[in-house]
Amino acid sequence: MKKSKKISLIASILYVAITTVLLALIKPTLGITSHGMPIIAYVMAVGSFLSPIIACVIIPRIEALEEKGE
């Protein structure tokens, strides 16, 4: 398997794993803020903006490898 494809696969698996962990933490009782909202809801909202940013870092690397034919 090409190196770029390997990175693609690993990054995707990591994404899904992180989502699973975040989602598994959903409990209304977990870390309630002073105004009654679970902290995990905020974490997920922030997480939803982080994943595309991570993608911005990884994708150019994949493209560079593809251009080299690796």
Partner: peptide
């Protein structure tokens, strides 16, 4: 609840990078 909507937002944010990668 908002946590449910946040879960959907998380799903959406994963959607496009997954297409882009895979």
């Amino acid at each position: 609840g908002f946590p449910t909507a946040a879960a959907v937002a998380l799903g959406f944010s994963l959607q496009f990078p997954l297409i882009a990668y895979l």
